[in-house]
Design a protein around this nucleic acid. Structure first.
Lengths: 121, 121
DNA sequence: CGGGATCCATCGAGATACTG
DNA sequence: CAGTATCTCGATGGATCCCG
């Protein structure tokens, strides 16, 4: 790629990638069937595994476990083992997880309006 | 965060659905492998089908056609047939499509920061 | 209770060839 | 040029059973 490249009316593949990648990251993080329901449940209160399984209607333990790991690896959710008997585990939103809410709110606002617009047609 | 949250500590399934649905709508609209690359290409300038096929590296005509129909059905993209010979078709972002940019920017901002955060670990 | 392991169905997307 | 039609495959997620 030329160092002397001036501003063009079209984008280079590199520019596009840098532009798109972080947006895609967000989609990957909150996308899929269960991430939003889980985050929403946790935004109301801390839940144990079994409680989440009941709150998030329809989810299987297998998926719940996998999704919680994903969310935890992204720093959105905190996992806390309580050594009661039997052992219980508490899941909660981290502060960082809560910071996602601004983004979700922006999406929600546009989405609510869009739904209205599409319905009217 | 949410209006609901200030009112109750837990959510009903109905409330959750209404809360989540518009966000999911946005994910569906810009999600998948090709929507963002296509929207990004069109955000720079109007393109014909074949031009888009070249701009969006790797896409097949089958997918490009399908994705453009999706975007058009959501009012984000305008399709304009030019009766030249042979016929050419121009695709462009609608004003409504451009309104999505605020949302994408919010996502991008969070995503850029997140990528930095994850990389540092 | 909090998961893991295994098998299976569905769907998004690629490859390729073809048409008006 | 602007798409369509088939076929195929890998990923996502569901069903079921199992364990410490």
């Amino acid at each position: 790629m030329s160092i002397l490249k001036t501003k063009t009316e079209h984008s280079t593949p590199e520019e596009c990638k840098i532009f798109i990648r972080p947006v895609r990251d967000v989609i990957d993080i909150v996308g899929g069937k269960w991430k939003l329901p889980i985050l929403t449940a946790l935004s109301f209160k801390t839940h144990r595994f079994k409680e989440l399984e009941r709150q998030v209607a329809g989810i299987t333990p297998r998926m719940l476990s996998k999704e919680l790991k994903d969310l935890e690896s992204n720093g959105l959710v905190n996992r806390k083992t309580l050594y009661t008997s039997p052992v219980t585990v508490e899941y909660s939103l981290t502060c960082y997880g809560k910071s996602l809410d601004e983004v979700l709110s922006a999406m929600r606002e546009w989405g609510v309006n869009h739904r209205k617009k599409i319905m009217d047609k």
